[in-house]
């Protein structure tokens, strides 16, 4: 590697004045005595000045509109799909589970030691059998069924909430100049 090559490696640093004084002085002396390196240095100075002044390009007028469309499409793709069919399946399942729960809690499967309702059981005229001691009252059962039903509905509500929380108000994405 010739000394000229070594100098060339340092020309940018020399040009930007980031060399230590000793190295800077050596480069300076070399440039004074070497026309080829001096020319290269002059070219580098010219080049960096030209690069700083190249014409800037500007985004097209459609840029914002295109970006807005892409964002809207992106949001649509991310939205969870809650179809009527999915909803009906969910509700059917909830009703079936509620019925099963109601059946077991009123039949002989009810553990005898459950004493949820301290008040005397209410007689149900439509029921052929008299209520057993310790059985859960109809009102309580109804509230339990509601509770269970709410539990079953919960995932759907969470989805809806999540949807709301991430649903971007597209009117707010103005993307200036539109």
């Amino acid at each position: 590697m010739s000394y000229c090559d070594t100098v060339k490696d340092l020309l940018s640093a020399y040009m930007e004045d980031v060399l230590d004084p000793e190295t800077k002085s050596k480069i300076q002396s070399h440039l004074e005595g070497c026309p080829a390196c001096r020319q290269t240095y002059a070219n580098l100075q010219f080049l960096t000045q030209k690069l700083r002044n190249v014409s800037p390009v500007a985004a097209s007028e459609e840029f914002d509109q295109k970006l807005r469309s892409k964002i809207i499409n992106e949001r649509r793709e991310q939205e969870p799909v809650i179809s009527i069919r999915n909803l009906s399946y969910g509700l059917s399942g909830a009703v079936a589970l509620a019925c099963a729960y109601f059946f077991f809690m009123t039949d002989s499967f009810t553990p005898a030691n459950i004493s949820v309702d301290p008040q005397p059981p209410v007689k149900i005229s439509s029921s052929p059998s008299s209520p057993k001691p310790g059985a859960i009252s109809v009102s309580k059962q109804t509230s339990l069924v509601k509770e269970e039903s709410n539990k079953l509905k919960q995932p759907i509500e969470i989805d809806t909430l999540r949807d709301k929380s991430t649903n971007i108000d597209q009117d707010k994405i103005i993307l200036v100049d539109q």
Binding site: D9, L10, L11, S12, N43, T48, L51
Partner: peptide, 20 residues
């Protein structure tokens, strides 16, 4: 980074000699 910038400048100035 510094080395690449310097080498890129040298390559460009070599290519753009005629322009200069």
């Amino acid at each position: 980074v510094k080395s690449r910038v310097n080498r890129a400048r040298l390559k460009l100035q070599e290519d753009l000699k005629h322009l200069m």
